[in-house]
Computed example of a mutant assay.
Amino acid sequence: MNNQVKLIDADKLRIWLAKRMHHPRIYGDPFKCVLDAMLNGEFDPDTPPVPTIKPGDKVYHKRFKAQGKVKKISASGKRAYVVWFDGYVPSYVSLDSLEVVE
């Protein structure tokens, strides 16, 4: 038995419905149309982007203007544990707040 949660992208559903709401006779039973589209994967969420920051990368914190080195990425893939060169305490920070430094 597969207990994995199946999600849909609400924006894709909204756009799909908006395109069809002006022509109800063309598309037939609305419930069946939505169900068929769902089963065909038309509303499946896009695959999230793979983070480009990885352990060992030198990074720059955009807000605090500090540089450091990534030691590990959190299990969620949204945060990095960084050891800072500027004397700050090592910490987990959001990947969105970091840039890779060459």
Rank of each mutant, 00 (worst) to 15 (best):
N2S: 13
N2G: 12
N3P: 10
Q4P: 00
Q4G: 05
Q4T: 08
Q4K: 08
Q4M: 09
V5M: 09
K6T: 13
L7D: 10
I8V: 10
A10Y: 12
A10F: 12
D11V: 12
D11C: 12
K12A: 11
K12R: 03
R14N: 15
W16S: 09
L17I: 15
L17K: 15
A18I: 10
K19T: 08
M21N: 10
H22M: 14
H23W: 14
P24Y: 10
I26L: 14
I26E: 15
F31K: 11
K32W: 00
K32E: 02
K32G: 00
K32T: 04
C33Q: 07
C33W: 05
C33R: 07
D36W: 09
A37R: 00
M38V: 13
D44V: 15
D44I: 14
D44C: 15
D44M: 14
P45V: 08
P45H: 06
P45S: 05
D46Q: 07
T47S: 13
T47D: 14
T47G: 12
P48R: 02
P48L: 04
P49M: 15
P49W: 15
P49Y: 15
V50R: 08
P51I: 11
K54A: 11
K54D: 05
D57P: 00
V59L: 04
V59Y: 04
Y60C: 01
Y60G: 00
Y60S: 01
Y60E: 00
H61K: 04
K62W: 06
R63A: 10
R63L: 04
R63Y: 10
R63S: 07
F64W: 12
F64H: 14
K65P: 02
K65W: 09
A66L: 08
G68C: 02
G68F: 02
G68H: 01
G68Q: 01
K72W: 04
S74E: 02
A75Y: 13
A75M: 13
S76G: 09
S76W: 13
S76D: 08
S76Y: 08
S76E: 11
G77R: 06
G77I: 13
G77N: 06
K78C: 08
R79W: 05
A80H: 03
Y81M: 05
V82S: 00
V82M: 02
V82F: 00
V82R: 00
F85W: 15
D86Q: 03
G87H: 04
Y88E: 12
P90K: 02
S91D: 05
Y92A: 06
Y92P: 04
V93T: 04
V93R: 02
D96Q: 11
S97V: 06
L98V: 04
V100N: 03
V101H: 10
V101R: 12
V101S: 11
V101W: 14
E102S: 06
